[in-house]
C-alpha cells in the first residue's frame, strides 16, 4: 500500500495513459492479523463477536477463525480506486460481491483491469474489473468500478463530482 509521502506526491494518471486490458497497479495488504480485524471493529463500533472472539467464531458460528468484516472490504476497495485517481481524478462508482472469507494470516492483493474507456463531456471515464485476491489466488470480492480521469490538456474533473448527462 502507498505511504503518506507517496500519496502526497502522487503524479496524476491521465485518461490518455490507460488502455483497454491494462492492469492497474495493485495494492498488497497484509498479512492480516487478529489485531487488524479487532482494530476495525473498534473503530466502527461493530461488536459482532465473530470478528474478535475466536471461540465464538469457531465453536458457535462454525467459522475457521475470526473473520475480517465486509465493511472493511467495502472501505478498502474505494480507497484503492481513490488512490489510483489521485490527485485530481475521481473514483465515482464501485460495486462488488462478498465471496471468500478473509482470516488472519491472509495477504490480500487489490487489483483492477481496464475493461472499457470513453470520453464524455471532456472527461475520461475508465471502467474497471476489480477485486481482492488472497495469497492462494482466491477472489474475495469480485466487482467493477468506474473512475474519472482528466484528459491530458483537458478540463479538470469537477469537484464536487457532477456525473455526465445520460
Amino acid at each position: 500500500m502507498p505511504t503518506a509521502e507517496e500519496l502526497r506526491s502522487k503524479k496524476q494518471v491521465h485518461y490518455d495513459d490507460v488502455k483497454e486490458g491494462q492492469e492497474m497497479p495493485p495494492y498488497v495488504i497484509g498479512p492480516i492479523t487478529p489485531t487488524h480485524i479487532f482494530r476495525w471493529s473498534a473503530a466502527i463500533e461493530n461488536w459482532h463477536r465473530i470478528h474478535y472472539d475466536q471461540d465464538f467464531a469457531v465453536y458457535h458460528d462454525g467459522l475457521p477463525n475470526v473473520v475480517a468484516q465486509g465493511t472493511w472490504k467495502q472501505s478498502v476497495m474505494p480507497q484503492y480506486l481513490k488512490d489510483l485517481c489521485l490527485p485530481d481524478g475521481w473514483a465515482w462508482k464501485v460495486s462488488f460481491q462478498h465471496r471468500a472469507m478473509i482470516v488472519p494470516g491472509d495477504t490480500l492483493t487489490c487489483h483492477a483491469k481496464v475493461t472499457k474507456r470513453y470520453v464524455k463531456e471532456g472527461l475520461g471515464f475508465v471502467e474497471l474489473e476489480v477485486g481482492m485476491k488472497n495469497q492462494d489466488d482466491v477472489e474475495t470480492c469480485p466487482g467493477s468500478g468506474t473512475i474519472v480521469l482528466p484528459l491530458r490538456g483537458g478540463r479538470p474533473v469537477p469537484y464536487p463530482f457532477v456525473p455526465p448527462k445520460e
Binding site: 500500500m1 502507498p2 505511504t3 503518506a4 500519496l7 502526497r8 495488504i29 487488524h36 482494530r39 476495525w40 473498534a42 473503530a43 466502527i44 472493511w72 472501505s75 478498502v76 480507497q79 481513490k82 488512490d83 489521485l86 490527485p87 485530481d88 479538470p156 469537484y159
Partner: peptide, 22 residues
C-alpha cells in the same frame, strides 16, 4: 477510522497539505 483502514492519506489529517489540494 483511517488508521484502522490503513489509509495514511494526508488529505485526511494534515491541515497544511490539505489546503494545497483541490
Amino acid at each position: 477510522f483511517c488508521q484502522a483502514l490503513m489509509d495514511p492519506d494526508p488529505r485526511y489529517w494534515d491541515d497544511e497539505f490539505a489546503r494545497t489540494t483541490r
